[in-house]
């Protein structure tokens, strides 16, 4: 408090970023990396589909053919993994995860989901997440961890065979990888739609204000 007063008090407090710079930077790097991973991943999926009748259109996939898609996938994976590692490490060390995403109460999730669906949920304070947000953000971080680990299990089923075994073997790991992708895409649809409905949240993730 005394420090704040000394350097200009409430003005400083008002300018304090809703999201610190490291969150915004890692968020947008992750956004680009995950789009490349999904687009190229869909092209790779098409080479040996897991589900009859499910193919991803060429117009929404990346890399033109399998080799191109693999080149993209195994390039963007470094960006995704390193950026993700920085984000998760800072999220834990800074206490942000504990502060923002915890605790998640099931009753509160239900109440906030109801409020959201009837458009009664408050967005006045963007620095505080409602229970649905907490659940979705914690969930997508978990999906991110699962998709990286299952990806490693598919990529290195000999060198990292213990990890592959943890996912139930090579073939099972492919399904885990697929469903983690589906979860992330599902999250993205909701996340982007909500950011467009509440545009100041998008601005906060860019400018911090």
């Amino acid at each position: 408090m005394s420090v704040e007063t000394a350097v200009g008090g409430s003005q400083i407090a008002a300018r304090e970023a809703i999201h610190p710079a490291w969150v915004r930077v890692t968020h947008w790097i992750n956004a680009i990396a995950i789009l490349v991973m999904i687009g190229s991943g869909w092209q790779i999926y098409n080479a040996a589909p897991l589900f009859d009748g499910l193919r991803f259109a060429k117009s929404i996939s990346l890399g033109n053919w399998l080799a191109g898609a693999l080149l993209w996938h195994f390039a963007a994976m470094w960006v995704l993994a390193i950026n993700g590692l920085v984000y998760v490490t800072l999220g834990i060390l800074s206490g942000r995860f504990r502060r923002k995403l915890w605790p998640i109460s099931p009753a509160q999730v239900l109440a906030d989901a109801k409020a959201a669906l009837s458009f009664k949920l408050s967005h006045d304070d963007l620095s505080r997440y409602n229970a649905v947000q907490k659940l979705l953000y914690a969930g997508v971080i978990l999906a991110g961890i699962v998709i990286v680990l299952s990806g490693l299990a598919i990529w290195k089923p000999v060198q990292l065979q213990e990890l592959t075994a943890l996912f139930g073997g090579y073939d099972a790991a492919r399904y885990v990888h697929f469903f983690a992708m589906a979860a992330i895409v599902g999250f993205l649809v909701v996340h982007v739609a909500l950011a467009l409905i509440v545009p100041k949240s998008l601005r906060a993730m860019i400018t911090g204000q």
Binding site: I44, Y45, A48, L70, D171, R174
Partner: peptide, 10 residues
């Protein structure tokens, strides 16, 4: 052993 194709099937 398991033969794993670049396409993903094994």
């Amino acid at each position: 052993t398991r033969h794993i194709c670049v396409e993903g099937w094994s």
